[in-house]
């Protein structure tokens, strides 16, 4: 348990230091803050809460294209498409990863409801995709089986 807390603390510390470093070097980028709390959360529901607050979560409206079984957990390709109107954000959460939130895309006018990314998966897990559109958050999920884990080597 102690080792785990130590790891978490170091990661949190590292993130803090770099956040300020990047801010100093590039003030223009500092305004677009990296969502530290969401990425540092170890439970997927905490990540979701950090990103979307208490927004209502409904199912459907999203197509997640992913393999049923991943031979190599280090590279699992995901393709997300949605035809929902007013997409603002797309987040990819791997439930059983040490840090479940892998990535999120903020969509501004000019880009659309499509996000492709390759994620690491520690073990067989459900992958959740959250899409914020208007004042609702939509979700799609798929379980991906992993034969070789991709976290920690």
């Amino acid at each position: 348990m102690q080792r785990r807390t130590f790891l978490q603390n170091t990661v949190a510390g590292a993130v803090l230091v770099t956040a300020s470093g990047v801010g100093l070097l590039n003030p223009r980028k500092a305004q677009a803050a990296w969502p530290k709390a969401a990425f540092a959360a170890v439970k997927s529901k905490d990540s979701v809460k950090a990103l979307f607050g208490d927004a209502e979560i409904v199912e459907g409206g999203i197509t997640l294209k992913a393999p049923l079984q991943a031979e190599n957990g280090a590279v699992v390709p995901l393709k997300i498409t949605t035809s929902l109107p007013n997409v603002e954000e797309i987040a990819v959460v791997v439930e059983k990863n040490p840090f479940p939130l892998t990535s999120r895309l903020k969509v501004f006018p000019g880009s659309g409801g499509y996000f492709a990314v390759r994620v690491k998966m520690a073990k067989t897990s459900k992958v959740y995709v959250y899409v914020k559109a208007g004042d609702k958050v939509h979700v799609a999920a798929q379980e991906i089986k992993v034969t070789i884990g991709g976290c920690g080597g």
């Binding site: 677009a32 990296w34 969502p35 990425f39 280090a74 590279v75 699992v76 390709p77 393709k79 791997v94 990863n97 840090f99 479940p100 939130l101 892998t102 990535s103 999120r104 895309l105 903020k106 969509v107 501004f108 006018p109 000019g110 880009s111 659309g112 409801g113 499509y114 996000f115 492709a116 990314v117 390759r118 994620v119 690491k120 991709g150 976290c151």
Partner: peptide
């Protein structure tokens, strides 16, 4: 003009490959 911004954590694979769509290009 900024059209999209991706935030990544350590859960994204090595040599990240990202795809987005542009609706107004």
């Amino acid at each position: 003009k900024l059209v999209a911004e991706a935030n990544m954590g350590t859960g994204v694979s090595k040599n990240p490959l990202l795809g987005i769509s542009l609706t107004a290009a």
